[in-house]
Design a protein around this nucleic acid. Structure first.
Lengths: 263, 263
DNA sequence: GAGTGGTCTAGACCACGCG
DNA sequence: GCGTGGTCTAGACCACTCA
């Protein structure tokens, strides 16, 4: 900012944190802009799949240069919250887009690739309203006894049952979710969550272990009790690092494997 | 570039790909600069841990603006090939740095964190020169029968054997590697590879399955044959996507878990 | 051809690390 | 106080998309 800001009716966001604070907490302008855009994203100013305003418009709105909003958007794009498309605009990310469907599912077939195999067939075994146990409440940042929705399902690939999953969702946010919805929605479950409940899963953590199934689990997956399985516990978050889904999956790894890239 | 380039004794990198090509293959300047820096990195112009020239120096060398080399370095930093340190410079990344030690090891203790637990104790069971099998050759991009070094070792945490690993390395690049080196080097094995052999592991892929150990494996890990284990096959790459290490690990997951972040 | 994101430049100033 | 990376601006031009 060469001279003091040019005459304007509205002050631009302040350059630094509070003056005289013990921790100066310097925050660059573009981080503040990023925060403002994030806020609009969270509060649904633009819906998933929609375009956000152009860089020039945002620069005008926030009274900063295009380069500054560009850097803010760059970070949002790096976090997969928005998607840039040259010549078209910047769009709120979705779990619906073809290329990145099943973004969070890292299980790949040993032979061929996921696109050959096609999407999983879903069998809903259970979908009921329940009360959060102490453990589930802790993980989902609820109180024990709060309403939750519990789902049990099987995912099959080319007819072979491969994943047995238990899902817990906060009842509050997913009021009215039915087994029919879970079973018949075309496309990723997370896309349905976005469209029908306005809940966007933004990132997730997984803890993976090797386990043996019990009798019931083995039957559902059509394996023996001595077949080792991957136990995948996933905690998925919306904006603001708010946990919104707990998933416990058992993955068969005789025809598939969990794939991960490190750098 | 407003007017044609200012008078200079050396031409800057060309702005576009070959003229008249069917695919114009437009490549931005900063990508070309990135390529040049990468080339210097690969050929050891700057060694791991050393500082690369300042942005201003590089800008002068390549006859572009500081902003352009900045964007090139930004990408290299995003890929963990270099590390920026404000006020000090930009440094060639290392597997030695404290914070990111064991960058590629995703196994965490269930209780406490890795820093509490401390580094793994290594027990080398085997370290010998051998010939690549057809399978290993295919994976490491060698020819069957080419010399390889084969290592078998156990990693223990707080005295408990937790990981049983088989490692295959191209004999060419790791000529002279001994069991003593593997056992007694302080710090990550990948740091030793950098210092003693000039081989930098830059990224890796892992395929994970659940398996049961055979008799021998079970004994080494001090578990029964019916204890399910994580089978982790890792292929690690140096520059240029050249595969340089194959690792097959068996991980106990009774006290640890494989942790992964998705976004 | 108008509008969007993408690249490139040049220059100013800021925060940080170190002697 | 100097050199480094980090932020911010203003302006020009390029590549892509779509009407």
């Amino acid at each position: 900012m060469p001279p003091p800001p040019p005459p304007s009716t509205e002050d631009p966001p302040s350059m630094s944190g509070s003056v005289g604070s013990v921790t100066p907490a310097f925050s660059p302008l573009y981080q503040q802009i990023k925060g403002l855009i994030l806020h609009s994203l969270q509060h649904g100013e633009w819906k998933p799949g929609e375009a956000i305003p152009s860089e020039i418009e945002l620069a005008a709105r926030f009274r900063v240069s295009q380069g500054t909003v560009r850097k803010a958007i760059d970070e949002l794009a790096a976090e997969n919250l928005v998607t840039r498309r040259q010549g078209k605009g910047t769009f709120v990310s979705t779990h619906t887009e073809r290329q990145v469907q099943y973004r969070f599912l890292k299980l790949l077939p040993d032979e061929g690739d996921a696109s050959v195999e096609g999407p999983a067939q879903r069998t809903i075994l259970e979908c009921r309203r329940a009360r959060a146990s102490v453990e589930v409440a802790r993980i989902l940042a609820l109180r024990a006894g709060d309403p939750v929705i519990q789902i049990k399902r099987i995912l099959s690939f080319t007819g072979v049952p491969t994943i047995l999953e238990d899902i817990w969702l906060p009842g509050q946010a997913f009021k009215g979710l039915t087994a029919e919805q879970m079973a018949h929605y075309q496309g990723p479950t997370y896309a349905m969550f976005e469209i029908d409940f306005g809940v966007r899963m933004v990132r997730a953590e997984e803890k993976i272990r090797a386990v043996l199934p019990d009798e019931t689990q083995a039957q559902w997956l059509n394996v023996t009790c001595s077949t080792p399985l991957l136990s995948v516990e996933r905690l998925a978050y919306t904006y603001n690092d708010a946990p919104m889904e707990l998933r416990r999956g058992l993955y068969r790894t005789d025809t598939h494997h969990y794939y991960n890239e490190l750098s």
